[in-house]
Nucleic acid binder design. Structure first.
Length: 170
DNA sequence: GCCAACGTTGGC
DNA sequence: GCCAACGTTGGC
């Protein structure tokens, strides 16, 4: 199980758009960068966690959690002459571009804004925060994921079960 | 709108 | 393979 951060310009496709999908899922299509493509094709697996990030807005922010529901498969928009990111050089018999499918899990409210994230000591090594970082599909470490979830208001989960059981129910 | 940082293309 | 030119990303 691995973790990722996916960037999207909300004017193009927002987390609200994802949560509004009839089945809650969407194909993460249109990625036309080789490094990001390699992650989508080779590394992203079903069940992986995804931080949904809104870029090119002020403030940019992590706005939701999603989950991978289908691993890498050819991106159909590459073959569609009508599509924004049509790639006439891409051969359906040997696809260049790949997508995964993700499902919205829940929004992060309030969003975790970029200026705040930059102040968090545990996140200083995060790819998102590196100056000039442009990668739109990027890996997130276990530690970074935990920190983000904590900032999002999740209680820290412990492997150890509670000692009291029956008496606490109801 | 500005501009730094980056990825891709193409001439050589 | 090198590298300049170009186009894009994305924060500010």
């Amino acid at each position: 199980m691995a973790y990722w951060l996916f960037k999207s310009e909300p004017d193009c496709y927002s987390f609200e758009d994802l949560m509004g999908e009839p089945d809650g899922t969407t194909g993460w299509d249109g990625v036309r960068n080789f490094q990001a493509r390699n992650f989508l094709r080779d590394s992203v697996q079903v069940g992986d966690g995804v931080l949904f990030y809104h870029s090119s807005v002020t403030p940019a922010a992590v706005v939701g959690i999603a989950e991978v529901v289908k691993a890498g498969h050819p991106d159909p928009t590459a073959f569609d002459p009508e599509a924004d990111h049509h790639d006439p050089k891409s051969d359906p018999d040997e696809p260049t571009w790949f997508q995964v499918s993700i499902k919205g899990v829940r929004p992060i409210d309030p969003p975790l804004e970029l200026p705040m994230l930059k102040t968090v000591a545990e996140l200083t090594g995060m790819e998102l925060l590196r100056k000039g970082s442009r990668l739109s599909v990027q890996p997130v470490s276990d530690a970074e994921w935990k920190t983000i979830l904590r900032l999002a208001g999740d209680k820290p989960s412990k492997a150890k079960p509670r000692t009291k059981t029956k008496s606490q129910k109801g």
